[in-house]
Amino acid sequence: MKIDLSVLGSTELISLMLMSLYRGAGYRRYRMDRFEEYDLYVKNKDFLVSDSVLTFTDTNGRLMALKPDVTLSLIKSIRPKRGELSRLYYSESVYRPSRGDNGFREISQTGVECMGDIDFGTEKEILSLALDSLSLCGERHILEVSHAALLSCFVDALGISDSARHRLMGQIWTKNLHDASALMASSGAGCAASERLLRLLDLCGGPSEVLPRAGELAATADEKKHLAELEQVCCGMDSLQIDLSAVSDSSYYNGIVFRGYVDGIPRRVLSGGRYDVLLQRLGYDASAVGFAVYMDELERIDIPVAALGSAEV
């Protein structure tokens, strides 16, 4: 039977293309239940985009939630361990508060996760898949990469209090360097450490341009180690954009973090990173890296569906 592909909307089509891409790269589909025990989110609230979760009581009296996130449930189902590597992709709905009002929205996400033994090769593979995913969404796209632990080292060197650090990370996330400078000065941060951080945050561009300059700033063994990791992962991928300030204040990411943008779409369409810390918090001694593509951001994208013709099934 022939199916006319023009019956599909842009997001349905992109989702199919993404799943085909991931399957072709050797990833296995993982399907999940729509519900999860609320307890999982209570314990890991700071991993979620929002504290608000849609809950209900099931027939056994257990408090359940409509999933606000896919990764936590995936970890729970896979039970990752050392000596193995699970390569999975999914296409699922999550339920999150909408920004414009007090209601909730169903958001469709398609993504990949690698869990178990992760090496630089796996991280490179994930970055490469992220770039290919963005290519399917739009010709002009940018994948911006940073390193959570590297930025953390530079911030640790300031020797400021936890509350000042939390505020500073928020300012870094919004590139608000004018308020960040004032905060560092008023929080007793050392001048040299503050200056060094501001110079790091100013670095933005391709890996071959930015990483050597970051190398001039890295002082401690840990900083040099994290920078070497970033160099190894980004090596040969000149289309990446390095922006070392692009790290949200999440304690779960410990290595590379990245976000993808497509020209014409105002928000990030893809985000991901290395999150070993989350696995450890959930009691698994393993590593993980992955990303999600936010299909709701792609609804208005112009894909010439009609030009695709039909598919034989």
Partner: peptide, 14 residues
């Protein structure tokens, strides 16, 4: 008064 920028515009029209 602060100068604010769209996150994607900052990437494509930096």
């Amino acid at each position: 008064a602060r100068l604010i920028v769209n996150r994607a515009s900052y990437r494509f029209r930096g």
